[in-house]
């Protein structure tokens, strides 16, 4: 196999593996939104507060997935 193809292969596999980290962010977002929706259903008066906190939590959970994205973008576009 010629070196260029090997490099591309390695990059693609590495970027794909790095994005596994996004699964954690997905699970976290799902849990927090699920909990928030339940809370809003039981207590509609506090929707605004719950929503704000939910968005904050979702943002923190998403940040982890974003780190994974950063790693895979670096592997794909910056590594030579």
């Amino acid at each position: 196999m010629d070196p260029q193809s090997t490099i591309i292969l390695g990059k693609a596999i590495g970027a794909g593996l790095a994005m596994i980290g996004a699964a954690g962010g997905g699970i976290g977002i799902g849990l927090s939104v699920g909990g928030a929706v339940q809370a809003m259903g039981r207590n509609p008066d506090h929707t605004a507060t719950i929503q704000t906190n939910m968005i904050l939590g979702v943002a923190f959970a998403e940040a982890v997935a974003i780190y994974a994205l950063v790693v895979s973008l670096i592997i794909l576009f910056v590594l030579n």
């Binding site: 943002a59 998403e62 940040a63 974003i66 780190y67 994205l69 950063v70 973008l73």
Partner: peptide, 13 residues
Amino acid sequence: FAKILSFSFRLLG
């Protein structure tokens, strides 16, 4: 400081 990173990469990503 991590906020800078997460803010910028969330939107970009």
